[in-house]
Design a protein around this nucleic acid. Structure first.
Lengths: 304, 304
DNA sequence: GCAGGTTTATCATGAATCTGAATATTCTTT
DNA sequence: AAAGAATATTCAGATTCATGATAAACCTGC
């Protein structure tokens, strides 16, 4: 694994403690060691790192530049180890204070975040969510470096240590202004209507355009948009229909911001996935989160 | 510090190695230990964690549920420790592959990201940037948990372990379409012009509105916007002036997308800060980054 | 600058762990 | 059911680290 074989990891605990107490004796006491043992141990670490590490000064043992630099990093990871060993064996939604981090694109936020937050907060009142979006980063690194617990969306590339679940194939729905009733929309003729096409990402674009073309609707598209934000406003002010990803359509309909047309355009070929890193495979908290997500979003046909 | 005192940290290395090799003997060999010593050490860890940790199976030593859960976490932090000890003492921009993470608001991206990326990439070709924006998170946690190296912007709250540098007080500038020359704009009368006011965040709003009122320009504001994205387009299509934060005005002018008016509205009271966590205080890479940022953005009057 | 007191480093002895080899045990595989 | 292979256990000798006492170094106050 690493060259840590050469260094007694317990010495790093000592380093932190000496740093915090500013005293070798006090550090020894805190660690349950005698003073000579502590001094000796510090000596060993000094030898291993080839640095004085601490020099005596008016304020006690003062860290050298090297020590000051590595102590925060080391403390972080020692606490991480401690957490790893004391973490509860099971995840209890009722009491957990855990922060889950999701990696959602802009579209993902629109589709997933609100229902997910609602469900999570109702099941686990102490849990917090944080969506991270790292424009320059690729998903692989985001997950590998633990900046996110799961990623949701159209995720073509998959690294070697990533696992995935197929949530659904994104379909497309036609929506009408909420002022129209279900009966009224049933009489609408798509080919004679003005259409707004909302295609959130470049990844989607080819797919939906082809679907539209197959239905002979290409000439009816009067407005193409990349974002959903203003769509509800548009729908209620100007009188048009819109073709949008199915998940989003259903959310709008549920909020009475749109009326769904019965016509279902074919399912896209875009697989919407949940992706996570092998690292979090056995984490009870992550398992719980993934179950919540599957329960919320996964197409029943795809479950196994 | 922690209850790690009770556990020999070196045993955790063993845990990982046994997990990876699936064999006690092989793990021992990898760690430079004899087979009995390895077995004994594993026995001690079993006692300490009160779990069998591994059971013999067809594929060698197979991890128990507990082991599977904690191994990824432990591996992460052991590698972190290893990194902390082997990290270069100095930061070399020419060769570094480091990823810097910034915490910028939407406004921050507009103002800071482009010039920062340009400068960083030119000085350090191998370095990568990643802007993180965590809607649910507060800045404090973002910095404390190392999800960002620095935060830039209007940052009122400051936790106990955060340090900050005052970069500048945001001022406001009036800009005109780029089609107008410097001579032409000199003759413009603000009070007779239509004005667009771009106020990026709620934090800014009161401040700039007051400045505008003090100049008797309140009635000239024909459009208020929250985002900068479409401003260049607006400026060149409809014939108006705009009041925008100074940093943004200068960037537009530099890109020939606007002409600056000489009039400088008073400095705002909003301090734009760079904030970072004590943890990264001594990290040479972060020191370098902060210097770059100060060099780029800090008001010369505020340096010391 | 020197004495006093505190803290750190050094030195022998003793406890714990590792090595090496040999053996018992347990599980997989044929 | 038996062979095969790996893990667990045992023992003496060697190494390493901790202990308790001592020596050296350092900060503080005069």
């Amino acid at each position: 694994m690493i060259n840590l074989r050469r260094i007694d990891l317990n010495l790093l605990s000592l380093l932190i403690t000496v740093h915090d107490t500013g005293s070798v004796s006090a550090a020894g006491q805190a660690l349950g060691l005698s003073q000579p043992a502590t001094s000796n141990a510090l000596g060993r670490l000094r030898l291993a790192l080839n640095d004085k590490l601490f020099v005596r000064g008016p304020g006690g043992m003062e860290p050298t530049a090297l020590t000051a630099r590595i102590v925060p990093e080391i403390r972080l990871h020692l606490e991480g180890l401690s957490d790893a060993l004391t973490l509860p064996t099971v995840f209890d939604p009722n009491t957990s204070q855990r922060v889950f981090r999701t990696a959602l694109s802009g579209l993902g936020e629109q589709i997933f975040l609100a229902p997910l937050a609602e469900r999570v907060f109702s099941l686990a009142p102490g849990v917090r969510l944080s969506n991270v979006s790292s424009p320059f980063d690729d998903l692989n690194r985001t997950l590998t470096q633990r900046h996110a617990d799961v990623a949701l969306g159209l995720l073509p590339q998959q690294g070697r240590h990533l696992r995935q679940t197929h949530l659904f194939n994104e379909d497309y729905r036609v929506i009408a202004p909420p002022s129209l009733t279900q009966e009224q929309v049933a009489t609408l003729d798509l080919k004679r209507s003005r259409l707004i096409l909302v295609v959130p990402s470049a990844t989607f674009a080819d797919d939906i355009e082809q679907v539209v073309a197959e239905h002979g609707l290409a000439d009816n598209i009067y407005l193409r948009m990349r974002h959903f934000g203003v769509l509800p406003e548009l729908l209620s002010t100007i009188d048009t229909l819109a073709i949008v990803p199915g998940q989003f359509a259903r959310r709008l309909a549920a909020a009475n911001q749109a009326t769904l047309l019965d016509i279902v355009l074919p399912r896209g070929r875009q697989k919407v996935l949940m992706v996570w890193h092998v690292n979090s495979d056995a984490d009870p908290a992550c398992i719980w989160l993934r179950e919540v997500i599957c329960d919320l979003f996964q197409d029943p046909e795809l479950r196994g």
